[in-house]
Amino acid sequence: MIALNVNRRQYSVDVDPATPLLWVIRENIGLAGTKYGCGMAQCGACTVHIDGEAVRSCVTPVSRAAGKIVTTIEGLSADLSHPLQQAWIAEDVPQCGYCQSGQIMSAAVLLRENSKPTDSDIDDAMSGNICRCGTYPRIRRAIRRAAQLMASGGAK
């Protein structure tokens, strides 16, 4: 049994420790917001946080998350109040939406570490997340907007 803390809730799962965290989150815990896109850390659709750091859950053995704090898109905010979510709505970022959980989880680490990201910072933070619909220009704008929201205290 592996003990996991996901979005501030305790779980105990009976899986092979080598199983990718992605499938444990999706199938054992039942949180489907984290997506499968490539299975080899190429696309970023599966991005979650372990102790606040982004990881590609499709290549992360569940054993690595044992005893750590896992946060998924469902745990980002209960009510769409996170500045990134507000900015994503304001800029109408998603098209198909499949990659957006991962995009937002990557952007969250960026803004935590750099409250005023430049274009080049956004490139450095976001180039691991593929969007086949091509929402990159809007993701860029939304990250800037979220940074402004945070600076002005407009969102928690």
Partner: peptide
């Protein structure tokens, strides 16, 4: 993925080396 060295050699933001490398 246009990974960068970062402030301590461990990558940057959501693209730290350990995001993918186990």
């Amino acid at each position: 993925q246009s990974v960068k060295r970062g402030p301590d050699g461990r990558g940057k933001y959501g693209m730290k080396c350990s995001a993918c490398h186990q």
